[in-house]
Nucleic acid binder design. Structure first.
Length: 720
RNA sequence: GCCGGCGUAGCUCAGUGGUAGAGCAACGGUUUCGUAAACCGUAGGUCGCGGGUUCAAUCCCCGCCGCCGGCUCCA
């Protein structure tokens, strides 16, 4: 990275880098590969300056699979420019310049930046290195400031670097995108040029070959090819239509979840997709997360009347406002960016009261003869319309639910609860709708409608630890079943300094629950990291990250402790001492949402689902020629097909008269798990010939044996 | 939401300022055929949508919608 720690922080926040990314952290030495990439970023900047001398550079760190450099430049760099830039870079690496480290004082650094000589080939009078200037100003006092030189190029940089530009073995620019300076959308947008570099050509080639492989696993590509799902723009972006083959996977996942949860003592509830506004005021979601929810549906029997009155109020407001002397217009509305629930509810009322004060003032002024009496008409109109509006019944507002908790809390509250009822575990594959920003939508991974493997566990403090542990056990069980080896639990905790602001003011509960969660994680030997200051406002949480085979990282599931919202809902149970107590709530979703989880599974399995999950488990392929004497062979094939269907196996049969090679090719392309080839020879011997996707021809076996094995493999959810 | 790129048949893609093609899939026919594609034929498109420039627009310009790569965001 060419810059000082300010930039390293920036890189550390780069989602592309990820927490597992081996990027440089202050105080930790860079790996050799990182030094190569970091140095290559300097070479990139050098090349860009040779082509466009007025380029201004910001940050250029190594990231997970390469490096980037952010540049401000009038010319819009496109991939067509890459060849040109790479040619210049080549010259620089061929020249084999030394990376020379120079320690400078803060003043020297500032002077150079003023002269435009940082991230530059020399001084550029009149165009200071503005981003570098800003970075220098953010370097903490007392910290060393260093420059690195390679050839003509000098950059502000904490290092380290490879010894010489020639040590960068092989590199390639990959793409260009835009990024805000320091990741803040209020800052200018820069062009971010991505590239990658390796020790040698072979490794670079291997990397690109790996990318090609990864592309083949992309869930969007496979999802289309395997006819799992579609997203139709007439239905809406981010709204997934599950086709029968994808629906089959959903069925299996739900069967799995229902079995597992039943055995773990969960009970299932079913709740509607919408709810009235009030519930989201109670839960706190509406003031905080209104932007992520679809706009409400308004059911208003008095719509026309209400609109008329609102217009009257609006116009009389303006009349009053403008007829008042300027200095009396104390109209400034408080900024509502930090809405609390109460504020939200009271917003309209406060506005009305503000106006009412103005009305009273107006009347006083008229009485004192300070202003013309015609304002009285407006005041009367305003008061009349306001009163009439207040009398109208409030319209109903319904929201699509963005989460299931409020509905489940109401299920808890519907029946008087005793400590004997706890823990109460309410589960539902709930459908949620979230209005994600358009630019966020991404295949199945980020959608606007989703179905979540949700449940809320209501328990006492004494029960908490064992309940939380049981949830974790369930996660581990699922990881094993799906062969997920690389996972990480991010345990997000609170910052005591922010109690009452970002986090509910319950210091004891925070401490207790965090300690209990930590205990569970430690004793169960789960792979986790603790992330301070990232908890939910109502309690500590665990985000479960897994990595797909193409190295994409996904937060697949979440597991949260909630000791605040149940209180808001006045949820209580009767204790053995005959007092009322608020339960703790554990929110958990081990299989996340169908959308994201299946998206993950597609990439994880590369579309080659194990038998129990495969959309089409078996296809029967009779060897047919279309001749007249094949009737009994057709019957044999059909009987096998029927037998499978009768056992609930997703089996199809291919009765076309295509050659067997053609039938097999089609079945393989759709990644059908097991193909049963039946010809005359098999029929006569009571056999079927088994072919398994990815394993090829396994030869003829007795029909009964094959069936029994298929049923068994499905029943035990065998891995392959 | 922001910056940039892209949008041609069900799918993968070619193509041009003079209203469009290929392969696969589909459909019809022919084919005695044992483990990744037999052969012939037919049909299929308002070239994302709307406006503009032009004698003429799928192609050039503008707006919108959608997708892709990033940024921001992610209870």
């Amino acid at each position: 990275m060419p810059d000082q720690p300010a930039d390293e922080r920036n890189a550390a926040e780069d989602p592309a880098a990820g927490d597992h990314a081996p990027h440089a952290v202050e105080g930790k030495p860079m790996t050799e590969l990182e030094r190569i990439r970091h140095s290559c970023a300097h070479v990139l900047a050098t090349a860009i300056l040779k082509l466009w001398p007025d380029a201004q550079f910001a940050a250029g760190p190594p990231v997970e699979n390469g490096f980037y450099y952010d540049v401000e430049l009038g010319h819009r760099i496109t991939p067509e420019d890459f060849e040109k830039i790479e040619a210049e870079m080549k010259k620089e690496t061929k020249a084999n310049h030394v990376f020379e480290r120079v320690e400078v004082s803060r003043d020297e650094a500032l002077t150079l930046a003023e002269k435009g000589a940082l991230a530059a080939l020399g001084e550029r009078p009149g165009s200071p290195s503005k981003f570098k200037l800003d970075i220098i100003q953010h370097i903490p006092a007392g910290e060393k400031i260093t420059l690195y030189r390679n050839g003509e190029f000098t950059d502000l940089c904490a290092g380290p670097h490879v010894a010489r530009t020639g040590n960068i073995g092989a590199f390639k620019l990959t793409h260009v995108a835009s990024a805000y300076y320091k990741g803040d959308e209020k800052n200018p947008q820069l062009q971010r040029i991505y590239g990658t570099a390796f020790k040698n050509r072979t490794q670079l080639d291997e990397y690109f070959a790996m990318l090609e492989e990864a592309k083949k696993r992309d869930h969007r590509k496979l999802g289309k090819e395997l006819q799992l799902y579609t997203i139709d723009e007439d239905i809406g972006p981010g709204l997934v239509l599950w086709l029968p083959r994808g629906g089959a996977i959903i069925e299996e996942l739900e069967k799995l979840a229902k079995e597992t949860e039943f055995q773990a003592g969960y009970e299932r509830v079913r709740t509607p997709h919408i709810a009235r506004q009030n519930i989201y005021l109670t839960s706190g979601h509406l003031p905080y997360y209104r932007d992520s929810m679809f706009p409400f549906m308004k059911l208003d029997e008095h719509e026309a009347e209400r609109r008329r009155l609102e217009e009257e109020i609006q116009s009389s407001k303006f009349e009053i406002f403008f007829k008042l002397p300027a200095e009396k217009r104390t109209f400034d509305s408080q900024k509502t960016s930090k809405l609390t629930i109460r504020d939200f509810k009271a917003e309209e009322e406060e506005e009305r009261q503000r106006m009412e004060r103005l009305c009273t003032l107006a009347i006083e002024l008229v009485e004192r003869g300070e202003i013309s009496p015609e304002i009285i008409d407006s005041v009367e109109l305003f008061r009349k319309a306001s009163a009439a509006l207040a009398k109208l019944p409030q319209p109903d507002r319904y929201y699509l639910k963005a989460m299931n908790c409020p509905h489940h809390h109401k299920c808890f509250a519907a029946v008087p609860r005793s400590y004997r009822d706890l823990p109460l575990r309410l589960a539902e594959y709930g459908t949620n709708y979230r209005y994600e920003q358009s630019g966020e939508l991404f295949g199945l991974m980020r959608v606007r409608s989703m179905q979540m493997n949700d449940a809320h566990i209501y328990c006492t403090r004494e029960q908490f630890e064992s309940e939380f542990n049981a949830v974790n056990e369930m996660y581990l069980k699922y990881f094993k079943l799906f062969g997920i080896e690389k996972y990480l639990m991010r345990f997000s905790t609170h910052d005591p300094a922010k109690l009452g602001q970002k986090f509910v003011n319950e210091p004891e509960l925070w401490k207790q629950t965090e300690e209990m969660v930590r205990n569970v994680l430690k004793t169960s030997g789960i792979n986790y990291v603790e992330v301070p200051n990232e908890a939910a406002f109502y309690g500590p949480k665990i985000d479960v990250q897994v990595w797909s085979a193409i190295g994409r990282e996904f937060t697949i599931a979440t597991n949260q402790v909630d000791f605040a919202v149940p209180k808001r809902f006045n949820l209580t149970y009767r204790t053995s001492q005959n007092t009322d107590e608020t339960p703790l709530c554990i929110h958990r979703a081990p299989l996340g949402t169908h959308e994201r989880f299946i998206g993950f599974l597609i990439e994880h399995y590369a579309g080659n689902f194990p038998l129990w999950l495969a959309p089409e488990q078996v296809r029967v392929l009779p060897l047919l020629s279309g001749a007249d004497d094949e009737e009994s062979l057709v019957q044999y094939a059909k009987s096998i097909h029927h037998e499978l269907r009768a056992e609930g196996v997703r089996a199809e049969i291919d009765l076309t008269t295509d050659k067997i090679n053609g039938k097999i090719a089609r079945a393989e392309q759709m990644k059908v798990h097991t193909m049963l080839v039946v010809g005359r020879r098999d029929q006569e011997a009571g056999n079927v010939s088994v072919r398994v996707h990815g394993k090829g021809n396994l030869g003829a076996k007795p029909h009964r044996e094959v069936m029994a094995d298929l049923f068994q493999a499905i029943k035990e959810r065998r891995a392959a």
